[in-house]
Design a protein around this nucleic acid. Structure first.
Length: 284
DNA sequence: CACCATGTTCCTTG
DNA sequence: CCAAGGAACATGGT
């Protein structure tokens, strides 16, 4: 489900709800999502610990906890994979079929649910080390972006999915950013002119920021089984249907007329993922 | 039945 | 050592 904006909105939603809550019990129902940490180690570190912070990095959620009478903090890393969700629900509510980890906080449970189990909730935080600079921060400069792209023969669309280059960008926003910048997804990264690098950086930041704005306006309270699957993606989610129409301009729109020039949107496959683009607005 | 899916990692090849 | 490509992971929707 999640790319940078969705994870950002989720972090902002969860942070105040979790703050100062103590983990009274830990239930691991899918060992796989802890990997490579063992259940014993996981439970030992988190049982009795209190949530003190939550931030997003790339597509990761970084929870910070503190154990009673201990100085050192514990970091817990979450990743939603393709289908992960996190939410609080009353302790009396039955667990979802694919609830993978459940923390009891007393009257409520904090649930990590993931249908496909591609996601993670683990004490292993090393994946953070290889991430590039946050695209919405000043560190993501034109110079940095240009230099990184200049070393690559890969198509620009594929390169945008590289988390060591721009963490948080996934298939949807990579497609959207290229459309808004008027750049062909097939163009080799190193072929982008300085001007196009600047334009792409700008489009990327705008698309991500707008999506965060959008996500901040819709309810994330899924507790009690309010619908499956999506945060606030394409198609008809259980919210703001009219707003959705305009939001994604090319993603999953193969065959529909381009919003600018009416040319049918095309779908191709790059690096085994779907790419959507307007063959007229986005030329090499 | 066939094909598709918002992501990462591991293995192989050059 | 690195870049790039592809399969694997697991389940559900169309």
């Amino acid at each position: 489900m999640p790319e940078l904006p969705e994870v950002e909105v989720l972090a902002r939603y969860l942070a105040p709800l979790l703050k100062s809550k103590t983990i009274r019990a830990v239930e691991v129902r899918r060992l796989r999502v802890l990997r490579p940490v063992s259940e014993q180690e996981f439970t030992r570190a988190l049982l009795g610990a209190r949530f003190v912070g939550l931030v997003r990095r790339g597509k990761y959620l970084v929870f910070t906890l503190r154990r009673p009478r201990e100085r050192a903090k514990v970091s817990l890393l979450g990743h939603l994979g393709m289908t992960g969700r996190m939410y609080l629900q009353p302790a009396s509510t039955p667990l979802a079929r694919h609830a993978a980890v459940v923390f009891s906080l007393g009257k409520t449970n904090f649930v990590f649910e993931d249908t496909r189990y591609f996601g993670r909730l683990t004490l292993e935080t090393r994946s953070l080390e290889t991430l590039g600079p946050e695209p919405l921060s000043d560190d993501f400069s034109v110079d940095y972006f240009a230099r990184a792209l200049n070393r690559s023969m890969q198509p620009i669309k594929v390169k945008l999915l590289d988390q060591s280059l721009v963490p948080g960008v996934g298939n949807i926003y990579a497609n959207e950013a290229l459309f808004r910048a008027g750049i062909s997804p097939r163009l080799r990264a190193r072929k982008l002119t300085r001007k196009r690098v600047e334009r792409l950086r700008q489009s990327l930041r705008q698309v991500l920021a707008e999506a965060i704005q959008f996500g901040a306006t819709i309810p994330l309270d899924w507790a009690g089984g309010s619908r499956k699957g999506r945060l606030f993606y394409y198609g008809q989610a259980d919210c703001a249907p009219d707003f959705h129409e305009e939001r994604l301009l090319v993603y999953d729109r193969a065959g529909s007329p381009c919003s600018v020039c009416d040319t049918p949107i095309r779908r191709i496959v790059q690096a085994a993922r779907s790419t959507f683009y307007c063959p007229r607005c986005q030329r090499a």
